[in-house]
Amino acid sequence: MIELIQLVLYGVVLGSIITLGAIGVSLVFGILRFAHFAHGDMMTLGAYFAFVGYVTIGLPFWLAFPVAAAAAAGVAVLIDQTIYKRLRRSDPVILLISAFGMALILRSLVQIIWGPSNLVYASGIQLPIRIGDLRIKEDHFYIVGGALVLVIGLHLFLTRTTMGKAMRAMADNVDLARISGVNTEKVVIWTWVIAGVMAAAAGIFLAMDTRLHPVMGWRILLSVFAAAIVGGIGRPYGAIAGGMVIGISEEVSTLFINPSYKAAVSFAILVAVLIYKPTGIVGARR
C-alpha cells in the first residue's frame, strides 16, 4: 500500500511535468490545428537554457528560470515566424512534417552546443525527506508547486485577459474570431509565447527530476501527446487531467510491468482513448 502511494506521488510529479508540455501541445493544436512534433525538443531546449543561466552564468535559480522560459518563448516565436507561418496555408500535415524536421534540428543544435552527454543542474545527491514511510525529494515540491502556479497563471490569462479570451475564441471558431476583429496572427504569436514558456518549464522540471540530455524531450513526447489527447486535444484544461492520468498510470504500472515499458502504458492509454473517445475523457466538444 505504501508502495502504491509512493508511486502515485511520483506519478503526480511526472504528471505535473507532462501537463505543462501537454498544455502547449493542446494550445497549439487548438489555434493552428496541427500536432507540434517539435514540442519535446522545445522542452529540452528550455532545460538547457536554464542550465546556461544557472550553471554557466551562475544566476540564482529564481532568475534563471524565467530567463530560460523567455528565451524558449522567443525561439518558439522565431520558428513560427520563419517556417510555420509560411506553411499555414498548406495542409496541416505538412506543418506536422515540418515540425518533425524542426525537432531534429533543435535536438542537433542542443548536441552541438552542449554535447551529447548527461548534465545536471546541481551535483550531489539530494536526500529525500521522509514522511512516515514515504520519500519525497525537495525538488518534487518545487516541481508540483511550480506547475500549479503556472497552471493557475494560465487559467487567469485565459479567463481574465482580452488576449486570453481571444485565444479561446480563436480555438473555438477562427472565422468568427476574425469577423469580430481579432488579429489572428497576433493570437498565434501569443500562443507560441505561452507554449514556449510552458515547454521550458516542463523541460526544466524534467531535468530537475532526472538530468539534462539531448533526447530527454523527444523521449517524453509520446506521454505529452497522450496527455493532450486523453484530456481532449485543443482543450488546455483537459491537459491537466490528461497529464495526471498519464503520469500516475506510468508510475503505478511499474508495480506490474518492467519499468522500461512505461512508454507502452502511455501508448496503450492513448490508443484506447483515440478509439473509444476521440474527444478526450474530460468532455465532448469537437
Binding site: 479570451k165 475564441a169 473555438d172 471558431n173 472565422d175 468568427l176 474570431a177 469577423i179 469580430s180
Partner: peptide, 25 residues
C-alpha cells in the same frame, strides 16, 4: 458588423464572453 448564418457563436465561451469578443476592437 456581420452575423454569419451558421457557427455564429463561440460555443465554449460564456454568453458574456461572447459579447466581450464582439467589442474586441
Amino acid at each position: 458588423c456581420y452575423v454569419p448564418q451558421t457557427n455564429n457563436v463561440f460555443t465554449s465561451l460564456t454568453v458574456h464572453e461572447n459579447l466581450e469578443m464582439g467589442a474586441y476592437v
